[in-house]
C-alpha cells in the first residue's frame, strides 16, 4: 500500500512558494522486507547485542518518517574502531542504536550500498557518554535507482565529541536528515559532508545542531559538485535553546555548479532562544575559477582533465581519511565514472 510521507520539513518555515520547507515521498510499505537489508560488522570495535532499546526521538526527517520505523532498535556498543557495511537488496528499513561508552575513543566507517527503488531507510541513533569521542565516516554508494533516507540522530553528553564525515555519491534521490543534540556541557559536534551529483540525481539535506547545554560547539560543512540537471537543497539549522550560554555554532557550504541546468537551493537558519551565543553561516556557490583551470593547463592538463583534477582533489579531503585502500579505489573509480 502506497502512502505519502512528509520528509525533511524545516523546523521554521519560510515562504511556501520557494518550495524549500520540506518534501514528500511516496512509499509502498508492503514492499519493505526485513531480509532486504543486511548489516555486516568488521573488526572487534563493535559489539552487536540482541538487546532492544528505544531510539532517540524526533529525528530531522520528521514524524511521518517515524511511522516507517519500529519503535525498538538493536543496541550496538562501540568500544573501538570498526567498519560496518549496510547492504540493501530491495525496500528495507534498518534502525540501530550505537552507544559509545564513557571515555571511549573510536572511528567507525560505514558503507551503504545496494539497490532499493522504493526506499532504503537507514536510521541510526548515536549516544555518546561523558568524554566519549567518535568519528563516523559514512560513504553512500547506492545504485542510482534508489530512494535513500539517511536518518542520523545523536545525543552528546558532557565533554563528548562527535565528528561525522560523509560522502554521498549514489542513489537517485537522497534525503539526509541529521539531528545532533548537544545535551552535555562542552560537548562538540563537527560535520563535513561532500556530494557529487549528476544526471537527474537529487539530494535533500536537513541538518540540525541543537545546542542545549552551555559551552557547546558545532561546525557543519556541506560541500559538493552538481553536474547535468542534478539538484540539491541544503537546510542547515543552528538551534540555540534557552540556557546554552556560551555556545558557538557555524554552518558553511561550498557548491560547484558545472552545468546551466543544475538546481541549487540553500536555506541556512539560526534559531536563537538564548542571547549569549555565537552563530555563523556562509556559502560559496559558483563555477571553478578560470584562474585555477588556466594554472593547471599551463602544467599540461587539458581543460577537461583540469576540471576532473579539481573535483577529484575536492573529494580527496574525505577519501584520504580512509585507511582502507580498496574502498578508496572503489570511491575514486566511481567519481571518475561520473566525471568521464
Amino acid at each position: 500500500m502506497t502512502d505519502v510521507y512528509n520528509i525533511n520539513t524545516s523546523p521554521a518555515l519560510t515562504f511556501a512558494k520557494l518550495g524549500m520547507n520540506g518534501d514528500r515521498i511516496s512509499v509502498n510499505t508492503s514492499l519493505i522486507k526485513k531480509e532486504n537489508v543486511e548489516q555486516y560488522i568488521f573488526g572487534n570495535g563493535i559489539t552487536d547485542t540482541d538487546d532492544i532499546d528505544e531510539a532517540l526521538p524526533g529525528g530531522a526527517a520528521g514524524q511521518d518518517i517515524d511511522r516507517l520505523l519500529s519503535t525498538e532498535s538493536r543496541i550496538m556498543t562501540v568500544k573501538g574502531n570498526a567498519g560496518i557495511t549496510i547492504s540493501f537488496s530491495g525496500s528495507g528499513v534498518i534502525r540501530r542504536v550505537l552507544k559509545v561508552a564513557r571515555g571511549v575513543e573510536a572511528e567507525v566507517v560505514e558503507v551503504v550500498k545496494g539497490k532499493a527503488p522504493d526506499i532504503a531507510l537507514n536510521s541510526t541513533s548515536y549516544i555518546l557518554e561523558k568524554n566519549a569521542r567518535l568519528k563516523l565516516i559514512r560513504i553512500q554508494m547506492l545504485d542510482k535507482d534508489t530512494l535513500y533516507v539517511d536518518d542520523l540522530r545523536a545525543k552528546l553528553h558532557e565533554d563528548s565529541y562527535l565528528e561525522v564525515v560523509r560522502l554521498d555519491l549514489g542513489s537517485k534521490r537522497s534525503y539526509i536528515a541529521s539531528k545532533v543534540s548537544l545535551e552535555g556541557k562542552n560537548s562538540e559536534y563537527k560535520a563535513h559532508g561532500d556530494y557529487l551529483l549528476n544526471g537527474s540525481q537529487r539530494l535533500d539535506i536537513n541538518m540540525i545542531a541543537e545546542h542545549i547545554a552551555p559551552d557547546t560547539v558545532s561546525d557543519m560543512r556541506c560541500d559538493g559538485v552538481l553536474l547535468d540537471s542534478a539538484s540539491k537543497i541544503f537546510r542547515g539549522v543552528l538551534d540555540f535553546k534557552s540556557g546554552c550560554k556560551g555556545a558557538k555554532g557555524a554552518e558553511n557550504e561550498d557548491v560547484i555548479l558545472l552545468s546551466e541546468d543544475v538546481d541549487n537551493q540553500s536555506l541556512p537558519m539560526i534559531l536563537c532562544g538564548e542571547e549569549d551565543v555565537e552563530g555563523n553561516h556562509g556559502a560559496s556557490v559558483g563555477k571553478i575559477s578560470d584562474e585555477i583551470i588556466y594554472y593547471l593547463m599551463t602544467r599540461g592538463f587539458d581543460e577537461e582533465a583540469a576540471v576532473r583534477l579539481i573535483i577529484r582533489s575536492k573529494f580527496n579531503n574525505i577519501t584520504s581519511q580512509l585507511k582502507n585502500s580498496d574502498l578508496r579505489d572503489v570511491i575514486n573509480r566511481q567519481i571518475d565514472g561520473v566525471l568521464s
Binding site: 585555477i292 594554472y295 583534477l309 579539481i310 582533489s313 575536492k314 580527496n316 579531503n317
Partner: peptide, 8 residues
C-alpha cells in the same frame, strides 16, 4: 601569484 589547489 601561484594558485592554490586544495586536496592534491
Amino acid at each position: 601569484n601561484p594558485i592554490e589547489v586544495p586536496g592534491i
